[in-house]
Nucleic acid binder design. Structure first.
Lengths: 125, 125
DNA sequence: TCATCTGTTATATCTGAATTATAACACTTT
DNA sequence: AAAGTGTTATAATTCAGATATAACAGATGA
């Protein structure tokens, strides 16, 4: 597990763990069926409480990324592409909403934003 | 003052006040030299503590939007639009770049992003 | 000058979220 | 049985945000 916890990120620890594991799943660093570290071992490794790790795992399970079995541990569920796309679309939506807030606050026109959008996305051609 | 405080916004009250006033300044609803409501009167109006309003005003002063004078009150400073806009455009650009990265990695088409963009920006009617 | 607006400061408290420590319990595997 | 898993309950801590209250200080107009 390649999880780095920052106090300056603004995100609570359990969310940082969540995100790191999601990233690992997206990038196939963690594959379907693979076991995650036990809550206690990861807690020891990160020098945090196992309850915090458990919270992260609970959220990941609720979101459909992993499955936890008492006495055994947690393992990665088959990637649900739709689910992943949902996640990514939600991330994008949050960015757009922030852009919307900024533009509204700063009197920046929709057209100006659209122009930047085109500029950056045209780059790939 | 047209400030609406929501408990569901996720933002602390003092930030909601900050944003509302920034928005009013950008939209010229509040003009240069104009007095803001006193900390106590706005606090009464919003049914919150004057300390919370003071915090919002303090942040606005630190950010260069208003000036507060003891015994008198707070008034709107001259807008430095170019500088502010430059900063805001840079913030927006960073968001768009993140969107670009996400969409590229997740195989989300430019059109899909564009659709979300329209959805969110059309909301304002 | 006095009353009454303004903002300022200090102290203490409350609340909720995040996090922790600890202990006891339950399931699985060897 | 032992040693690993996860689970649950309880209590405590920390921190940010927000509050209440009181006392202080500057501005202003009657």
């Amino acid at each position: 597990m390649n999880i780095i916890i920052t106090n300056s990120s603004g995100l609570p620890i359990f969310e940082q763990i969540e995100n790191a594991i999601k990233e690992a799943i997206f990038s196939d660093e963690l594959k379907e069926g693979e076991m995650l570290p036990s809550v206690r071992s990861l807690a020891n490794e990160l020098k945090i409480s196992f309850l915090t790790v458990k919270r992260a795992y609970d959220e990941l399970e609720k979101a459909g990324f992993i499955k936890t079995v008492q006495g055994k541990g947690s393992y990665v569920l088959p990637k649900n592409l739709d689910l992943i796309k949902e996640e990514k679309l939600k991330e994008i939506q949050e960015h757009i909403e922030k852009i919307y807030e900024i533009s509204k606050l700063s009197n920046i026109s929709k057209d100006e934003v659209n122009e930047m959008f085109k500029m950056i996305f045209e780059e790939e051609l």
